[in-house]
Design a protein around this nucleic acid. Sequence first.
DNA 1: CGACCCTTTGATGTCTTTCAAATCACGTGG
DNA 2: CCACGTGATTTGAAAGACATCAAAGGGTCG
Lengths: 221, 221
Amino acid sequence: MNLANLQVIPRFSGLDPTVLEWIGGRITLREIKNGDVLFWEGDPANTFYLVFSGAVKVCKHLESGRELILDIFHFGEAVGEIALIDDSDFPATAEVIEDGSVLVMSKTDYLDILDRYPTVSRAVIRDLTYRVRELSSRLKVVGSGSVEMRIACILKTLARHEEGDTMRISRQDLANLAGARLETVVRALKPMVESGIVQTGRNRIEILDYDKLAECAAELR
Amino acid sequence: MNLANLQVIPRFSGLDPTVLEWIGGRITLREIKNGDVLFWEGDPANTFYLVFSGAVKVCKHLESGRELILDIFHFGEAVGEIALIDDSDFPATAEVIEDGSVLVMSKTDYLDILDRYPTVSRAVIRDLTYRVRELSSRLKVVGSGSVEMRIACILKTLARHEEGDTMRISRQDLANLAGARLETVVRALKPMVESGIVQTGRNRIEILDYDKLAECAAELR
DNA sequence: CGACCCTTTGATGTCTTTCAAATCACGTGG
DNA sequence: CCACGTGATTTGAAAGACATCAAAGGGTCG
């Protein structure tokens, strides 16, 4: 892994070149393709992953066969870090939902870096803080309001992580984010399509009117 | 705040007496009573709180008038820490739901300690990690299954924080944890009472049969 | 004793799930 | 280039879960 790429990652920015080089020697870039699974719930956590491009969903599979997406990770975000820190098995499954690449490092090296550089551990605290906020926000969304409001809110959040206003996500994944069923999402989306708020396609949703979308999510903040 | 009390708090254990004494001089113990509000959503975050006894709920108030409880904090847990770390306003309201006491410290001193002692910052990472797990777990609970399963799951979790098997919580707060309505909770609780799994009273729920309760929460693992 | 808060119950309506089936879009091989 | 297979999306009808509204019951504390 070369220095130029490492430097743009918030987690490692601010470290001096010597350290970066050391890290670069222990970290590798791995291509990921839609459907790939980085790890399954219950796997022993001995690897650190950080999304460099593309997207990874982290989800729980319930006994009913339903799947609930806890979070979706994009550039610069660490996946499965929790399990490394508290030395447990992965509590959820990580699956690629958009082609790209991840940085991979051994648990030992990860903990080593964490222990050695205050800059990094401060970055970890910052990232964890952000995750707590994200999860709190998701909890609020999932725990209240109609499916339509939840969808609107989720789309707003997703849009923040995408370049344009077009999101690459299946109806099924949207349902798994909202804690709803696929068919319900389709039906909730219909009025939004008809009133020109969003436009849809296969694995694709485009926001046309951000303000109206925000209105749909009104109650949730 | 005396050293003996500080030492039993996980966050500060492992620090040497000199440091503890310094911290003790900047921290005060404050009594809290049911219904007290430590801070409101939107308040500027300039104080660090840590529950010493009793319990505090952190919740969001939705426009619909509904309230969603994000988390309930007990002994040793920091409340509103996120806002201190990322220098923002409190994102939710903290209200006392069980008489007790909290440790109070200024934001400046808190950040000072965090910056100065790796032991503490490691403890913060550990606590944040725990919170991410808790929130993930709550997300799973709220986002799936019937209200009865959710309630069972929530009771199991609550029981871990209480001394006996008796919890002091109102039906309303239980509903706000489950993302359901008061009446729905009452109705979901009825079969559990009738089959001898739990016993209820005013602001009180006692678990009689932990195994059967776990069965009720089955799907949510 | 009475006010107040928490809890319980009932009736009704709405939203969501469930199950089943049809349609559509995309990539593949002929 | 077109037919075809596969997976994603859409639609419908019926059942079920939950919310809502209204009112009554019960315990606690001043």
